[in-house]
């Protein structure tokens, strides 16, 4: 039914390795999460001062989006044509805990602002001037079936022409980010946008490219 929509690119950041379309492009095995995120930022020679003030969730999602969108034609779209449908299990709990610790002293607005998961969405939108539809859903586990249905609906009804979707979750040093760039058209190495392929990429299994 939805054969027109395709995964143009995907990026996974897990266990201190960054993968772009399955290929490992950076690793720093011994670092804790903040040090790992900073080392990846420096390795890819990214220059975006706002990165330093972000919380871990936003840094992780933002880095994954930078790698995902690298060498794609995302800039060819109008701002309103690109949106983000993201999900995770722990919302912003990692930053919530940091914020509540500040409250007994002086509540920190710089920490409080990161106590919503969709702040990460906002950071990616600001970086890329994406003004299309966004949404943040909370699931116990990555729900490829829901993402497939919801994103297909947005693309097939011309709400969006390109959608960045997936999972970005942080709890302490436990984390995982898997982002997909889904577009209406096909490209040379694109993969059909299906629940099966989303699950295969998420779980690092063999991808059915046919």
């Amino acid at each position: 039914m939805y054969l027109n929509n395709n995964i143009i690119a995907y990026c996974t950041i897990v266990k201190n390795v960054v993968y772009k379309n399955e290929v490992p492009v950076f690793e720093n095995r011994d670092a804790d999460l903040p040090a790992f995120l900073l080392s990846a930022y420096q390795h890819f020679e990214l220059s975006y001062p706002k990165f330093y003030k972000m919380d871990k969730l936003s840094k992780l999602g933002w880095l994954a989006s930078e790698m995902l969108l690298k060498d794609t034609a995302i800039k060819d779209y109008q701002p309103e044509e690109v949106g983000l449908i993201l999900s995770n299990a722990n919302a912003s709990l990692d930053s919530d805990q940091k914020y509540i610790k500040s409250v007994s002293d002086i509540p920190s607005p710089a920490l409080f602002v990161y106590t919503l998961p969709n702040i990460m969405t906002g950071e990616i939108c600001i970086r890329n001037n994406f003004k299309g539809e966004d949404a943040f859903f909370i699931f116990e586990k990555f729900d490829a079936g829901f993402i497939e249905g919801y994103v297909n609906n947005l693309l097939d009804n011309n709400v969006l022409r390109a959608c960045i979707c997936g999972w970005v979750d942080v709890w302490g040093d436990d984390y995982k980010a898997v982002l997909f760039l889904v577009e209406k058209g096909k490209e040379e190495n694109s993969i059909p946008f299906s629940k099966k392929n989303l699950d295969s990429i998420f779980d690092d299994l063999i991808i059915d490219k046919v």
């Binding site: 906002g122 600001i126 003004k131």
Partner: peptide
């Protein structure tokens, strides 16, 4: 419909163009 300002994480758009959209 939903839109994003792509402007600031805690302050709204200066123009209102995105909500208008």
């Amino acid at each position: 419909a939903v839109s994003n300002d792509a402007n600031h994480i805690s302050a709204p758009s200066r123009t209102g163009a995105e909500l208008a959209h």
